[in-house]
Design a protein around this nucleic acid. Structure first.
Lengths: 352, 352
DNA sequence: TTGTATGCGTTATCAG
DNA sequence: CTGATAACGCATACAA
């Protein structure tokens, strides 16, 4: 028999404590069955007779029963919850990925727990620890490079995880695309149009694997085509519109003889274009701009710019499917990064 | 004494079950104290002697102890978790708000649980139910109008909540800004420049309080200044770049004699501008475009457009603070919407 | 098909 | 300051 008296008036733990929400036992009492039966009626309908099931459902509905996830988590030893660590939430394509991830997971009943470093000293390790303490069944790590500590934590907790936006699968399964190929596409395109000296506005490579890989890929591609990546036209900065604007100003005022500038993402590109626009520099006649398309708005920007389209949404979905597979089938499912599509959306005009 | 044998070999529940993570009891055993002491050492340091505290901390660290949130939630009757329902995650300013919300909450140890309807039949009510089942201590409802059902659920569960981006506080505390004032600013601006007949591209007003309020505010402002909001230049659509593009095409091809079009958000505006650009329509000489600035990139768009800047980030922070207040002080703290700043970022040129 | 009893890992209460 | 012990609400193995 249960230790909590159901018939008595519920004793508030504290004076200000909110009224206790309905529990399985309350439903059971109302339906005139045992708690176990209610539990089964709700989550294993096939194990119960239709009649009692109806009675239970009605009772549950009548008192507005909502299962207690914490109790359920304790009993089942899983929370139906997945954590996501998401740097630079605002000015990146991460929202798109997160949306895709959330949708994919939600279809199987999983909920997403968010942790977004505010680049004001919040440590990834702490966020992961918090997420683990919340009992996430799995974890998605977006962008950036994470301290070894994080992976140690994940290992001791036995929590499956997946990294997004990287190819470096030394530490675990990854979902990403080929930065080298992306870079090559842009560079080839620019080279075909006769550009020789190009610049680059990208994210800080320090502690940012995405930015690092992007720059590295670009340098390889540039070398391969015999172009020059001019140092006096290469800027590392935070991602953001204002940052793109400022970076382009610096390049422009520096007088570097580049004829094209590649931007690490759309925000930077939009900012850069705004700077050129304001300065009255004709694009692409005087200076071409190219970009990697993190977002959906690059194709709509003016003036047109060469863009490599990155399959953001697909990455989120793929990551979600991978985690679900690990979570459900216990089958790790080869974690090889999916092949991804790269598309030139608009053409950077020939040099003037 | 505990019922689980700590010294014995842990019995796996199922053959495939992952190794159990370290528990309070494991730490206790290692540190040579009782579980209760470990609990206190970790979460109420002031109740414990420095010596044992150190010993416990070291033991916990050594075996990589991470507290079990579910168990903690059961005992404490709270999860240190806040839910957020977020429609249209991808193409809106919601990421910015969510980031602000998350940061504000994280500072006090709260984690954000995400639910993002995919407008493919996923019901808000279900998401709220799921979030409640996860045990969220409070809930943030962004955008849209929610079914009565939702509020009933929240009431029976006694879960505090806050709505963002609305002024309609009939159903509970809200954080929002004055849509009427925002609309008036745009309209006054356009009127001052001599525009008389204007169009509008906005979100579907059906089931979208934001869009509805925005249109209503616009209509009031237009009437007040004696302008005309032309029906043949008013388009309701999904938010998005492509949608803005298409809407403007429709208006343009329809031949409506408007001289200015107001867009419900930046995505729509960007799309509309792209359409005009592609069609070779000079902006703002032939047609002016104005917009509400949901995002941070409007000021960087070309050509310049009148923009009302909405305090997105502040809304997220305000909502976070409100929830924290309710959660911690038990003091509801008057839920009046904060006054918000409205700023004209760029000027829409005079009519040509 | 249904009822009963136990355990899940913490916190909190109450003695010592 | 510390140790034992009782909830917390649910799932599940076992009995009936």
């Amino acid at each position: 028999m249960s230790s909590r008296p159901t018939a008595e008036f519920p004793t508030p733990t504290k004076p200000n404590a909110r009224a206790r929400a309905a529990s399985l036992e309350d439903v059971a009492a109302l339906a005139g069955v045992s708690p176990g039966t209610v539990s089964r009626a709700l989550s294993r309908p096939e194990m119960i007779s239709e009649a009692t099931r109806q009675r239970v459902l009605e009772a549950a509905d009548r008192i507005g029963y909502v299962p207690n996830g914490a109790a359920r988590a304790m009993a089942m030893r899983r929370t139906l919850t997945v954590g996501a660590v998401i740097p630079r939430f605002g000015t990146s394509s991460f929202p798109t990925m997160v949306q895709a991830l959330e949708t994919t997971l939600a279809e199987r009943g999983y909920t997403l727990l968010l942790a977004a470093p505010d680049n004001k000293g919040s440590q990834t390790t702490d966020m992961v620890r918090t997420l683990l303490a919340r009992g996430v069944d799995a974890l998605a790590l977006l962008g950036s490079r994470h301290p070894q500590e994080v992976f140690a934590l994940l290992k001791t907790q036995g929590t499956p995880f997946v990294q997004l936006w990287t190819q470096d699968d030394a530490l675990g399964p990854c979902v990403g695309f080929d930065e080298s190929q992306a870079a090559a596409l842009v560079v080839d395109h620019l080279a075909d149009f006769g550009h020789r000296e190009i610049g680059f506005i990208g994210g800080y490579t320090r502690n940012n694997e995405r930015a690092e890989a992007r720059l590295a890929g670009l340098m390889r591609a540039v070398a391969k085509r015999g172009l020059t990546l001019r140092e006096d036209a290469t800027v590392e900065t935070e991602y953001g519109l204002q940052q793109g604007f400022d970076a382009m100003e610096r390049i422009r005022l520096g007088g570097s003889p580049v004829s094209a500038v590649v931007c690490g993402n759309d925000y930077l590109a939009a900012g850069a274009l705004a700077a050129l626009d304001q300065a009255g520099v004709p694009v692409p006649q005087r200076l071409s701009v190219a970009s990697f398309n993190d977002n959906e708005f690059a194709p709509f920007m003016h003036p047109p710019l060469t863009t490599v389209h990155l399959p953001i949404q697909e990455m989120g979905e793929q990551a979600g499917r991978h985690l679900l597979a690990v979570l459900q089938n216990q089958a790790p499912e080869a974690a090889a990064p999916l092949p991804v599509h790269l598309v030139i959306r608009r053409s950077t005009g020939p040099r003037g």
